[in-house]
Design a binder for these strands. Structure first.
Lengths: 215, 215
DNA sequence: TCCATTATCGAACCACGTTCCATGCTGGTT
DNA sequence: AACCAGCATGGAACGTGGTTCGATAATGGA
């Protein structure tokens, strides 16, 4: 079982979501597909267990972070850790939002995040919404990244800067009166850093939360 | 072409993403799969065109909304319209984050949202981040919903309240000292409304933005 | 020694995306 | 009329992936 999960995670790490097939997994383990089906009922469960496995690592990292006296700063640190972990394992983003059944390590992570809100002067409902908002920002932003890598980039034919520049170029060529915003933004987009973008979004949400916690 | 797209959207509306196959589409159109491949190169393009088709409708709805003298309120209204449209067509959420190539109606929608930020006292970079943050919240929150519907609910065997209650129940049964947050939240979760949750997240972000625009 | 449980394996089935080629249909050219 | 190019259609066939199933070992108690 353990071996199955680590092999599954390894496949996902090496070549993304499409690389994890029962046949490939069986080959890597030197067994047949039937064996894997003895451990998991179907691919959904395999994915659930593999992601839970990976999230376990994130959870450990989050739990190492000491609490400061600013709960919101602590939430921020956790969110950043989570984001970085997803960037590191882009396939996680795809399966992060596939889970209505919050259980296992996801639940623990959720709890950990939520505990910070207990130190804020909020109603239970506000706490619930705050944690949802923060995870929403993380997942929402990270989701874009997961896909933002057309094979051109992986192949090395085109690097990221050139890729972005091409977009910026096509945006600049649009009519300036119909697309004033896109026009103004093109330069920003060309040089943008995903992590900055995430931090900006996160900080907006947390600024709103800070405001709410004071009232 | 037009007929292909409307049929594709109809299939997606009726039975979600997994229902859109070339064979099903061909059957509905009374033709063969080869014909569809004459119009689109592959499934990705089919999906892109179908979503662009659907987003066209959202764009029209957004463009009907008159500008007020509060740009942030206008952004909020747009985001809500977008959210409602995604709730109405859950399959959109899955394909919303599959698009690095912001083009067509998506681009127009992006522009529309961004134009509101032009009326705020922000740097170009802050505008860029603000729009990313808002779309991130919409997509991030809506993504959860897209999947949050296990077939049990669709079958009508179990209704939503019961489904949520079951979770709340299992959460309450956790150890209260290990899971103080989840414990406190269980009740909120049981009766929670997805739209409220979205609005809360959106308002946090917009509150942060409002703060930023004043400095 | 016997039998139930646990575990392994791979052939076979089906649905899907995709390719390919044979066939029709249209309007214009000779 | 005959012909042809290009547009358009239809569906059989291929490869891949998830999943099922029955045959078969290993294990360990009665």
């Amino acid at each position: 079982m353990e071996a199955v999960l680590t092999a599954a995670v390894a496949l996902l790490d090496e070549a993304g979501g499409s690389a994890l097939t029962f046949r490939a997994l069986a080959a890597r383990l030197g067994t047949g597909v039937g064996t894997i089906y003895w451990y998991v009922a179907n691919k959904d469960e395999l994915l659930d267990r593999a992601t839970d496995h990976a999230i376990g690592g994130i959870l450990a990292a989050v739990e190492e972070q000491p609490d400061s006296d600013d709960p919101i700063a602590d939430m921020r640190a956790m969110a950043v850790t989570l984001f970085d972990a997803i960037v590191d394992r882009p396939w996680l983003s795809a399966y992060f939002m596939r889970n209505t059944d919050i259980q296992g390590n996801s639940l623990r992570l959720y709890e950990k995040l939520g505990q910070q809100t207990l130190r804020l002067d909020l109603t239970p409902r506000q706490r619930f919404h705050a944690v949802s908002a923060v995870t929403g920002v993380v997942v929402g932003t990270a989701a874009d990244l997961g896909v933002e890598i057309p094979q051109e980039l992986l192949d090395g034919h085109v690097d990221r800067d050139e890729f972005l520049s091409r977009f910026a170029e096509s945006w600049r060529s649009l009519d300036a009166t119909d697309f004033p915003f896109v026009h103004q933004i093109a330069d920003e987009f060309a040089g943008h850093d995903d992590r900055d973008q995430f931090l900006a979004a996160l900080d907006l949400t947390l600024a709103g939360l800070r405001l709410q916690a004071r009232t």
